[in-house]
Write a protein that binds this DNA or RNA. Structure first.
Length: 501
DNA sequence: TTCCGACAGTGGGGTCGCAAT
DNA sequence: ATTGCGACCCCACTATCGGAA
């Protein structure tokens, strides 16, 4: 029903009907499932555990609370034999489901529900079902970090129930995200910036986003997906603990820096953040750069304009713990900041409106990131069949650079990005003509077609034969004017974007 | 009537921890 | 010891809907 229509209003109507029909105690679970999430967040079941579902039941008998209880039990399984035990429990649930129920549950557990109803549409549906303003629902979701509890409150108590969701120090909220622009001029245009309207131009570091809560001297650190990673980061806790605040919520970035202040590759920061144990004697320390404050000693600042939040930040955080930032209305000055950030090895800048409040969880137009862009002409070595709306189309390109030593090609990664429907149709036809070998997923082709690829940088790769891979590769256009012999070489790739060490 | 902001979809590379092989 | 899997870090881009202009 929901997947069957492309219209958002129709989806909202259908979803709201489901919510009204649900028992009050089921509402949170129903909302989670319909938006493709589990209240448990994760239960250790993925694609591999779902490959061979048991025969479906003839008659429906499963209830939502039963499924929820089963998922909780599956999520609690651990230790030796846990993989087999989880699969056993998954099979038991699926065996009680009818064919359509099985199909839904498999897609839900695999994270492939894809029915066009994630947080945004579901928030509208909750608002419709509970007859409350959609903006109030969205705000509650941002503050609570989950749809389910918000749905329960809205359905039971209406708008009054939503008022109970406030910023609580110690509970993470969804972080504000940035839109992207290809150049400083376009970033300025998006924000309406100019001599009359200044903006903040902040360095963008290639690290891990962090929301740092201080509550009476106790510090907690949360990731973008609201996971608590405090215990992994003692040096971050130590750095923030010294600030002259009683209660505060900060937003910032964590990054591993070398002694000269230049950044380590992202992989170093990522590994450091993901490591739970102290297995190495001297882990690479992470540096903290705070760029926003959402609460300060009793005062919520979410709705305060950017300039006011920055003033509050500067009042309690010393410059060495703040993200470098320049306020200007001059695009040329902004470009200088961008150039300096890049020259020091960083990703680029984020241009921020001085007026907008902190719009958590939405890719609001208040922040716009600008990064440099590299390009290469590479050769397509193979193509993979697409899924979902790209089913039946050759979608994901295997990209290779010329290897002058062997006369062959070195694969540097894949991309499916940047392709229009028209281009997808064209390349599906074209690659069939060039096909030399085909398996279930992949069509291998004669290496003749040259494609211009944009990418952010080059990183060490344990996967690809050249030992390097492109980061965030996307298609700009095909180059019918170039032959494979004129494509860029592996040496050019290394020169264009050196791998940092 | 046209324009544009918000949203969902389609996957990319990488790391770690754990259980199975 | 190595491999497979699940969970999360980082992410760009296009199509579409529906309200704003």
């Amino acid at each position: 029903m929901v997947a069957g229509t492309s219209g958002r209003k129709a989806k909202v109507t259908a979803l709201a009907g489901c919510l009204r029909a649900a028992e009050p105690e089921e509402a949170a679970t129903v909302v989670a499932y319909l938006s493709g999430e589990l209240p448990q967040r994760q239960i250790g079941v993925g694609y591999a555990a779902l490959r061979e579902p048991p025969p479906p039941a003839a008659e429906p008998s499963l209830t939502v609370p039963e499924v929820d209880a089963a998922f909780t039990e599956i999520g609690a399984v651990s230790g030796a034999g846990s993989v087999a035990r989880r699969r056993e429990l998954v099979a038991a649930v699926l065996g009680r489901a009818t064919r359509p129920e099985q199909d839904f549950l498999v897609r839900l557990l695999a994270g492939e529900l894809r029915q066009g109803a994630l947080d945004g549409v579901m928030a509208e549906a909750i608002a419709a079902a509970a007859d409350v303003p959609a903006a109030a629902v969205r705000r509650a979701v941002m503050l609570r970090g989950a749809l389910g509890p918000v749905a329960t409150a809205a359905l039971a108590e209406g708008a009054r129930g939503l008022d109970a969701f406030t910023l609580e120090v110690g509970r993470p909220i969804k972080p504000m995200l940035a839109a992207a622009a290809p150049s400083m001029d376009e970033a300025f245009a998006k924000l309406g910036a100019g001599p009359e309207t200044e903006v903040a131009v902040e360095w963008k570091l290639d690290g891990i986003r962090a929301q740092v809560h201080v509550s009476g001297g106790e510090v907690r650190v949360f990731t973008r997906t609201l996971d608590d990673i405090t215990v992994r980061l003692p040096e971050v806790v130590e750095a923030v603990r010294g600030l002259p605040v009683r209660d505060a919520v900060f937003d910032g970035e964590l990054i591993a820096l070398r002694p000269d202040g230049r950044p380590h590759p992202f992989q170093v920061t990522s590994a450091r953040t993901a490591t739970r144990t102290t297995k190495t004697a001297e882990p690479v320390p992470l540096s903290v750069f705070l760029f926003d404050v959402l609460h300060l000693d009793g005062a919520d600042l979410l709705d305060a304009p950017g300039a006011e939040r920055d003033a509050a930040l500067a009042g309690v955080v010393p410059a060495e713990l703040r993200m470098p930032r320049v306020v200007t209305g001059d695009a040329a000055r902004a470009k200088e900041v961008f150039d300096e950030s890049v020259a020091r090895g960083h990703e680029g800048v984020v241009v921020k409106s001085l007026d907008t409040p902190y719009t958590a969880g939405r890719r609001g137009a208040g922040w716009v990131k600008v990064k440099p862009r590299h390009t290469l002409d590479l050769v397509v070595l193979a193509v993979e069949w697409g899924h979902g709306r790209r089913r039946g189309l050759l979608s994901n390109l295997h990209l290779g650079a010329r290897d002058p030593e062997t006369g062959g090609f070195v694969m540097l990664g894949k991309t499916f990005k940047g392709l229009t429907d028209e281009l997808l149709a064209w390349q599906t036809r074209r690659f069939r003509e060039l096909a030399v070998r085909e398996d279930e997923w992949t069509v291998h082709v004669r290496p003749e077609l040259v494609v211009e690829i944009a990418f952010d940088g080059v990183q060490h790769s344990p996967r690809y034969p050249g030992g390097i891979a492109l980061r965030f590769a996307r298609v700009l256009r095909y180059r019918p004017d170039k032959s494979a012999a004129e494509a860029d070489t592996i040496d050019t790739v290394r020169a264009v974007a050196p791998v940092l060490d």
